[in-house]
């Protein structure tokens, strides 16, 4: 099924991390409003391949908004114009015929470009490796229902745990801060009894790694929360700051 939208795309092309990139203009025709944004790029890529040109490299995998792999900065907004969705959930009905769409990669010092729209987000993995876990070996666990957890805490922990690690918060932030990402994991575990034994050590270690990766500072603009596809709340950052303060006071004593 082909549609009737004709669009101008300005896409960031960059051969690799060591070369400069630039915006290149492409035209796409007969786009259907029922197509997803990534399917529209698929069509452009098919055109490029037919012309024997290099297709645009972009990260994507599940195409249902949960893996966190897709990462496009569309018309100046991470994951495009709509709220609480990822790029792969964005459909062309959100645009209109004749639109010009600018597509760039996440921009952050800690997320270097690999090629075109693909960036390296392994900094997030290293932050988790620094403390984003409960230290429990396989087989240690007691019966799951021997630890009742109030529904409210459980729901709050779940809301924080819904983070998909896409990096939109970093891309949205003028300082390229990763506070929303880091605080979501810190909060999930701080809200649960399982996370208590390592609570203060965890926040210190994760924040230290976050700083080492070159993410910027938080200046409370709230852009991260506004652009988060999973609606992760700023209150997580407040919780992390409190825990960090408590941890710092305790370790100074």
């Amino acid at each position: 099924m082909s549609g009737n939208m004709n669009l101008t795309l300005k896409v960031w092309r960059q051969k690799n991390a060591n070369t400069d990139g630039k915006l290149v203009t492409y035209q796409v025709k007969d786009i259907s409003p029922d197509m997803s944004f990534l399917e529209m790029i698929d069509i452009l890529n098919e055109q490029l391949i037919n012309k024997n040109e290099d297709p645009i490299a972009f990260d994507h995998d599940c195409r249902e908004g949960i893996c966190g792999m897709c990462s496009l900065y569309i018309n100046g907004r991470p994951h495009g114009p709509k709220e609480k969705i990822t790029t792969c959930q964005l459909h062309m009905r959100s645009f209109k015929d004749g639109d010009t769409i600018v597509i760039e990669p996440w921009r952050a010092q800690a997320f270097p470009v690999i090629k075109d729209l693909t960036v390296d987000r392994s900094a997030f993995d290293r932050v988790i490796a620094a403390g984003g876990f409960v230290s429990v070996n396989t087989g240690n666990a007691q019966d799951a229902n021997s630890l009742p957890i109030g529904k409210e805490e459980a729901d709050l922990a779940f809301d924080a745990a819904a983070c998909i690690g896409c990096g939109a918060c970093v891309a949205a932030c003028k300082n390229a801060s990763a506070m929303l990402f880091v605080s979501a994991k810190v909060s999930q575990l701080a809200l649960l009894p399982q996370g208590q034994p390592e609570r203060y050590m965890r926040v210190q270690n994760m924040v230290a790694q976050m700083d080492a990766e070159g993410f910027g500072n938080c200046t409370n603009t709230g852009a991260c929360e506004a652009e988060c596809p999973k609606g992760i709340s700023l209150s997580n950052i407040a919780r992390m700051n409190r825990d960090f303060l408590v941890a710092s006071v305790a370790s100074n004593n």
Binding site: Q142, F158, L189
Partner: peptide
């Protein structure tokens, strides 16, 4: 059964009832 125990111990936020149980 052990899988559920293990996951809860890791902090996996399974759905709970008001009484706090799974």
């Amino acid at each position: 059964s052990s899988i559920i125990d293990q996951c809860v111990a890791q902090g996996v936020p399974f759905a709970r009832e008001y009484g706090g149980l799974l």
